[in-house]
Design a protein around this nucleic acid. Sequence first.
DNA 1: CAAAATTAAATTGTGCACAATCAAAGTTAG
DNA 2: CTAACTTTGATTGTGCACAATTTAATTTTG
Lengths: 151, 151
Amino acid sequence: MTDRDIIRLDNQLCFMLYACSRAMTRAYQPMLKKLGITYPQYIVLMVLWEWHDQPPVEQTVKALGERLQLDSGTLTPLLKRLEQAGLVSRRRDDSDERRVLVEVTAQGYALSAKASEWLQSQVGEHSVSLDKISQLRGELRELLDHLTGEV
Amino acid sequence: MTDRDIIRLDNQLCFMLYACSRAMTRAYQPMLKKLGITYPQYIVLMVLWEWHDQPPVEQTVKALGERLQLDSGTLTPLLKRLEQAGLVSRRRDDSDERRVLVEVTAQGYALSAKASEWLQSQVGEHSVSLDKISQLRGELRELLDHLTGEV
DNA sequence: CAAAATTAAATTGTGCACAATCAAAGTTAG
DNA sequence: CTAACTTTGATTGTGCACAATTTAATTTTG
C-alpha cells in the first residue's frame, strides 16, 4: 500500500466521521424538537444528568469543558441559554469566585425522563445491531484516545 | 439488555462521533493552517480535486450538496470564500441559468499536492493501524447508510 | 400559450466551535 | 506584603450547519 493510498484512506475516515456525526444529529432531530433543545445542549445535559445522579467533586464549567473538550467560548453562551430555558442553574462558587457551578434544575432533570421515553419508543426502529454499535463505540474510543494523545 | 442500556449505548455512540469528528478536525489543524483553509473547505476541495481528475456529468452546487449532504445555505458562502481566495471558480450554467458550475482553479488544484506532501510527512506518526482505519471506515459507512435511510 | 408547480441557488437568522483576547480571582515568590 | 504568575470564565470575531424564506429560471399542465 502506497502513501497515496494511506492518505486516501485517512481522508475517507475524516469524511465519514464528519458525515456520520451530522447524520446522527439529524436522526435525533425529531426528539430534540419535542424537547425544545439543540443537539449540543442535549450532549451537555447528558453530562449534567449524570452529575445529578452521581455528583463528582467539581461541578464547574471547567470540569464540563474537560469532559466534552469544549471551552468557555462555546459553553458560556450555551449554558446561558439553558439557564434562560429554566433547565440549568449557574452560580459563582463562594469559596473561589473564579469558578461557576453548574447543575440541572428539577425541570432540567425531568427532561431526562422525556428523552428516555422518546428513545425507548424508537428502540425497535434500529436495524443496526447492538453488537455493531457496541463495537463501533469501542473503536471510536480507541481512535479518540489516539487523537487526543493518550495512547 | 434493557431498553435503558440500549439508550445509554446509543448516547455514547452519539457522543463518540461528535467527539471524534472534532478531534479529527483538530488533528488536521496544523496542515490546514499551512494551507490557509478550514476543515469544511478542505472537505469541499477534496471533492473538487476528484472532479478535476474524473469529471462527473454535473459539476454544480447541487451535486456538491448531494455528495456532502450540505445545502446552499452552507455551500454558497463557503464557495464564495474559496473563490475569494482564488482556489475555486463559480459561474452560472449558460444552458440553465438556475445552476452554478463549480470547479477548482489551477491554484486550487495545486493545493492538493501540498496537502498530500504534508500528509505523507505524517504517515509514520500514525500508531493506529491501517487495518483498523479501514474497518472503522466500513462500519461508519454502514451506519451512515442506515441513518440516511438506505438499506 | 399562460398559470401553476418545481427546481436551484441565495438570503436571513440562530446556535454552535474555536481562536484570541480580556478581566478578575487566586496563588506563588521575592 | 506585593509583584509576577496562573487559573477560570467571559467576550469578540470568524466560519460553519441548518431551518426557513425568497428569487429567479425552468418545467409541467390545463
